[in-house]
């Protein structure tokens, strides 16, 4: 490898099958100027130690696979230039607040189940009727939800969220932002069906508004903002239930 600089990676190792305790293993890597942390891990796996387990796919910051803790911060490893960590060492760990399956692989199945709970799809009766053309939606109406639709499900926000460490039942920033993304979509009529999953202590009201989710988000989804909007909408609805006379049309 025609390398220029050297850096040491300290990689978290854990193998459920050998019964051993987790430990950090150091690897020295010669790297090129444009290498990201993921490139170094891939090089180590290819050339030195094929037992390392990690996820990656696109290497361009959009598939959401390669999230990990890099020097204690949740990062996309394909989006973290090695040279920014010089002279090292760079400590690489699985995303925190998740069970670890092996090495840098976390258990994502819980997240996937929670995602479905917010019913993240357009709910209305004529959704499969394409005969009348597209539903109209102005650029301003798109702007109401667009940033919240940019989530790549990388789960960095779960690793950043302090509530997740205290309250594992919390629905979490990404799932709440996604539910809110559909609530704010002018085409959707399913807000009422999402209320149960999204409100309550495991939902919107579980958030203590530290805002770390929006800080670590690599795609500017602003989950904290989505949750705030959700709280306001939910509170308005709560007051409306008192103010409106019984039997009044919603």
């Amino acid at each position: 490898m025609a390398g220029e600089k050297r850096i040491t990676l300290e990689i978290f190792r854990y193998n459920p099958e050998d019964g051993g305790e987790p430990f950090f293993q150091s690897y020295e890597v010669e790297y090129l100027n444009h290498w990201v942390v993921l490139d170094a891990i891939n090089w180590i796996k290819d050339e030195i130690d094929g037992t390392i387990a990690h996820r990656w796919t696109c290497r361009m910051g959009v598939c959401g696979s390669c999230g990990m803790m890099v020097n204690g911060e949740p990062k996309l490893s394909c989006h973290s230039l090695l040279r920014d960590y010089a002279p090292g060492p760079v400590r690489v760990e699985p995303l925190q607040h998740f069970p670890v399956e092996k090495d840098l692989m976390i258990d994502k199945s819980g997240f996937m189940e929670r995602l479905a709970e917010v019913k993240p799809y357009i709910i209305r009766d004529d959704v499969n009727d394409t005969g009348n053309g597209e539903y109209l939606q102005t650029p301003a109406q798109i702007a109401a939800y667009h940033e919240h639709s940019m989530c790549i499900n990388c789960m960095l926000c779960y690793a950043g969220c302090p509530v997740m460490s205290l309250e594992p039942a919390f629905l979490g920033p990404a799932a709440l932002a996604l539910g809110q993304r559909y609530n704010l979509d002018s085409r959707d009529k399913g807000q009422a069906e999402r209320v149960d999953a999204m409100s309550g202590d495991e939902g919107l009201w579980g958030c203590t508004f530290v805002g770390e989710c929006s800080v670590v988000c690599p795609k500017h989804v602003d989950p904290a903002g989505a949750i705030q909007k959700g709280k306001i909408a939910a509170a308005k609805q709560w007051y409306a239930n008192f103010i409106k006379p019984k039997g009044a049309k919603k």
């Binding site: 109209l136 939800y145 639709s149």
Partner: peptide, 21 residues
């Protein structure tokens, strides 16, 4: 038809001022 269907399912296609795709 397929692209309209995807629009109905929520795909945020970019729009003209009048709201058409």
């Amino acid at each position: 038809r397929q692209l309209i269907q995807l629009e109905h399912w929520g795909c945020p296609w970019s729009r003209e001022r009048d709201g058409s795709v």
